[in-house]
Amino acid sequence: MAIRLSFRLAALLCWLLISAAGAVVVFNYESSPGSSGSTPLRWPENAPIALDENRDTLVMFAHPHCPCTRASIGELNRLLAQAAGRVAAHVVFLKPSEFSSEWTQTALRRSAEEIPGVDVRDDADGALARQFGAQTSGYVVLYNNHGDLLFHGGITAGRGHAGDNSGESAILALAENRETRIAQTPVYGCSLLNQQCSPEKDAALCTK
């Protein structure tokens, strides 16, 4: 009887350990941030997006097929709702030239388009992303109306993980002119670059 009980407890322990190991893998994956490039401290002069002169300007770079970015769009929606028009938002979806325009017409894009006041546009071959140093979907940059970089990073707590997070809190504080010590957060999402590419290479090639 005792042997059978011990066997059962051992089996239970093994099961627990294996399950825990699996969970660690998943949590690690979820908590592994994507890469970021060099984000300019000043709003680029030649940027195709016009800097808003009256309020802060927020640009999110997104991969139209990244499932993790759904959480980022959701958080953006929440953030803009709380910011109450104090931020001019743009969502830029990667549009490789080899794909038709339909490639970008995803549910994610439609979610972004449905957010009131958000400008949604394509980023042909990731040129704009490269200009702002964005390499991971869900990467957000925030500039004030003077063109100064206020914040850059992700607005989710993990990959595809909705909920409160420090990036969102920081942007909201900046938009409300509150002080925040957070100017940069990790970004969680799909890479905007192909796997074999490195940021040092020609980014345009890496998206092909």
Binding site: S19, H65, C66, P67, C68, S191, L192, N194, Q195, C197
Partner: peptide, 29 residues
């Protein structure tokens, strides 16, 4: 929700799907 994960123009099965199948199966078994 997350059938595939993307890297640029490339995609592969999302870890969540594997986790749902195997980790979920393990937890359930």
């Amino acid at each position: 929700i997350s059938p595939r994960t993307w890297a640029g123009t490339q995609s592969q099965i999302h870890l969540h799907l594997w986790a749902a199948i195997f980790l979920g199966g393990l937890v359930t078994s």
